[in-house]
Every structure is written in C-alpha cells, then in structure tokens.
Design a protein around this nucleic acid. Structure first.
Lengths: 233, 233
DNA sequence: GTCCCCCGCATTGTTCAACAAAAAATATTT
DNA sequence: AAATATTTTTTGTTGAACAATGCGGGGGAC
C-alpha cells in the first residue's frame, strides 16, 4: 500500500536494492498492474522506480530466473504470459512437493501455527470481501505446508512457483470463485493435522489440488478462447 | 584477453554475457578452482574474466540465487561453504524429485537415450581414469532421470541443486570412491527401464541415493573434523 | 500498387568513471 | 595493551557514453 512513496518509503535493510526492486516488480505483476506480454522498457521503468538502468537490469535477471518475466536478447524483457502448459506444470510441481510434505509432517511443527494464522486471516479477508487478501492468505497456507518439510531449497523453489501461479491468477476475472471454496478445505486440512492424522490431511490436499487445478484451467481456457488470444507473442 | 576458451562448450552465443560469466564461475567452482569460503573480489575477478564490474555483479546475483555463492551486504560475495545440513537437504530434494520421476516414467521417453549415452560416457571416462568426466556423466544421468517428468520447472530446479552438490563434491579427496561404484547401478536402472519395469528402477535408485548420501556424508565428516575446519565463516 | 532494400531512430548491451557509504586496516592516544 | 580516531579499501549505486541490434519508414523498381 505504501508503494506510492518512492524513495523515502520503508527501506528493507536486509535486502539489497536490486532485490528490493525485483520484489516491487513482482508485487506489481501479481497485483495485475502489469499485463502479461507487456514490454518493460528499461529507461521508463528505471525512471518510474527511481533507480538506475544497471540496478533495474540486475532485478530483471532475478525475475527472469523466476520465470515471471521473459527476456529476448536485444529486444527487451516482457511480462511472462501464462500458458496452459505452465499451469499444468506448476500444479504437477505443487502435488509433488506439497502432498509428501503434509503426509510426513510432524503435527507440532511450528509451521502449523502459521497455517492456523493463514486460515484465520483468510476468513477475515473473505468477510470484508478482500479477495486479494484471501489469495495471499491461501498462498501463505500452502507455503506453510511446504515449510513443514524443513527444506530451505524446497521453500525457495515453491515460493517462485507460487509467484508464477499468482501471475496467472491475475488473468482470471472472478477471484472469489477461485479461492472462496477452499477456505473451508484449508480448515479441514488443519483439523486433520491437529488430531495427528497427516495421511487424511494429505488426502484432502490432493483433492484440493485437483479441484483447484481444474477450476483454474477451465477459467483459463475460457479466457484464452473468449477474450483476445493475445498479441502474437 | 581470451585465454583458454576451450573447456567444455565455452562460447554460447544464445546466452547473454552475464549468464555466460555466471556459467564460467560455476564451472570454476565445480572444478575446484575456487575454494569454499573464498572471497571473490569484484575488481579482481572482473579483471580476470575481462568484463566490467556491473556485468560481474549481474552474474553474482544469478549465482547467489543458486546458492553457489553467498552474498554479505557491504562485505562482498564468498564461495559457498557446503554444510552437512545442505547435503542432507539436497539429498532429500533429490529423493523427492528423482524417485517419482523414474517410477512414473514412460519407458520410451527421449530422455532414456540421454541416460544411455551417459552410462556409456561414464564407462569410457572411467577407463581413461577421468574422474571429473565420470562425475559429469553421472550427473547427466540423473538430470536425464528428472527430465523424464517433462517438467521445465523441475529440470531447472534440479540443475541448481546438482551444481550445488558438485561444489560439495569438490571438497572430497578421492573422487573415484565417489562415483565408480555407481556406474554399474546406473546401468542396472537403465536395464530396468528398458524392460519397462519402472518400479524396479525406482527401487534401485532409492537404494543408490541412500548409498550415495552415506558415502558423501561420511567423507564430509572426515574432512570437517580431520582437516582444518579453519575459516571461522 | 506491391515488394524490397536502404537508411535513420530507438532500445538494448556493455563499459567506464565517479562518488557515497560501509567495513577493514592502520595509526594514535591514553 | 586497550580503546579510539583516522586512513584505506571495497562495495553499492549512479550517470554518461558508445557499439550493436532490431524496428519502422521512405523511396525506387517492377
């Protein structure tokens, strides 16, 4: 929310400037302020963000590696356009990571309290019709599931993939259809964990992922065929 | 100042210069030309590689994200020092990715021929006592296993993790102990795939990973306690 | 009118020089 | 010798500069 103040805004001391800039661009992309396929001019964006071209280029390299942005040599960088293949791949990865993490979880892991907090926060966000907030809380819930595995590398990888998925979400029109039905399921997963039945929790999660994937894919197919099938690239 | 540009497919026109520089540093780290914990001076390395500081910094950002290098703000970047925790995490990730990929493989996937080529190449390398080559072929074999899953994201993630593991390998003294016993097992995995028995292949792989992990961990423990644990970092 | 080539223009790719800020190293004082 | 002040080195970031590449437009040729 405070991103409108450019320079004097809250500066993350821990993060270096290029990381911070990358983070801002990531947020813009997730919030839908950048349309997929759009070209990101170096001079323009550098000016808008108040940094030099070199710094912006470092941020671009990060985002390219995260697949949030696509780099064509000597042509520039473009906001990634989500594909059906990408969505399928992302859900495959999610299944491969989340389900075993939940199935083999220790039911008193600290991440469980994060999960609980996310469930509460998603319900609150729903009550005030803040669908963006519901989405964030939902994503936080699933990040916490991955955190159950105690693997820094898996956590980092999942964060990337989740960001890419949220970019795809931005294309869809009705965000409530997307996340609302899953709040209850998240609570059910949490309840299963609480009573120590990780297998049941993993089962619910698997169903959740199937359901979510189908929802996203159908919505996406509707967009792809209905609305403009996008500029050539 | 183009010094020896021969080693292993040096010039990649498709890649941008920072990517290329990152790749060279990565190769140096894997080959053991960079010792873990060593500080990488920007001016010095930029001069050695014949690029500007800015370009080198872009490469550093890539490598930092890959965990091959560690960045301390206002202090510089250091070659990552492998930890026991890191090795444990890497093998956990490998198990999570490789075993399902193999178990659910289609036995006529194009990656199978890559696997075959790697087996042949590793045997040839062993015959000429080229342990570096054996290591490369072995890693190629396992990358091909991951490729069976047809997931670009998984492939990319695995490539990172594999590079990190090879950095850890560089610390160990006797490379033949590391890879030699596994050439035969790779061949066995391939044979199982060829006769369509993916479950058996996955079983051999799981045993392989346990065995490999134990070997690396014990060698690593010997190093850590025996040789100087030295740099306080 | 359509096609093609050539030329100018905008953008990216890369380097260099400069300076602020932080850390490390050194000298100075007590 | 310890603590502090000062110098030096290194990183962090910027701005300008220039080559190289891609894009679009205009002018001929048919």
């Amino acid at each position: 929310m405070q991103e409108t103040l450019d320079d004097a805004a809250a500066v993350d001391d821990a993060l270096s400037l290029p990381d911070h800039i990358a983070s801002r661009i990531r947020t813009m992309a997730i919030k839908g302020e950048l349309s997929p396929g759009q070209r990101l001019s170096e001079v323009r964006l550098a000016g808008d963000l108040g940094v030099s071209r070199n710094t912006l280029r470092e941020a671009f390299r990060l985002l390219t590696r995260e697949r949030l942005v696509h780099h064509q040599p000597n042509r520039g960088v473009f906001v990634a356009v989500p594909t059906m293949a990408a969505i399928l791949d992302i859900y495959r990865v999610r299944r491969m990571i989340e389900v075993p993490a939940l199935a083999r979880a220790w039911h008193r892991h600290e991440a469980v309290s994060t999960m609980r907090a996310c469930v509460v926060s998603s319900q609150a966000a729903r009550d005030r019709h803040d669908w963006q907030g519901v989405g964030s809380a939902n994503m936080g819930f699933h990040s916490a599931i991955v955190a159950l595995a105690d693997s820094p590398r898996l956590n980092g990888f999942y964060r990337q993939v989740a960001a890419e998925l949220r970019l795809a979400f931005g294309l869809l029109d009705d965000p409530e259809q997307l996340h609302e039905p899953f709040i209850a399921q998240n609570a059910a997963i949490l309840a299963a964990i609480d009573r120590g039945d990780c297998e049941a929790a993993a089962g619910i999660l698997a169903v959740y992922l199937d359901h979510s994937e189908r929802t996203v894919l159908t919505a996406f197919a509707r967009i792809e065929h209905g609305a403009g099938p996008a500029p050539g690239l």
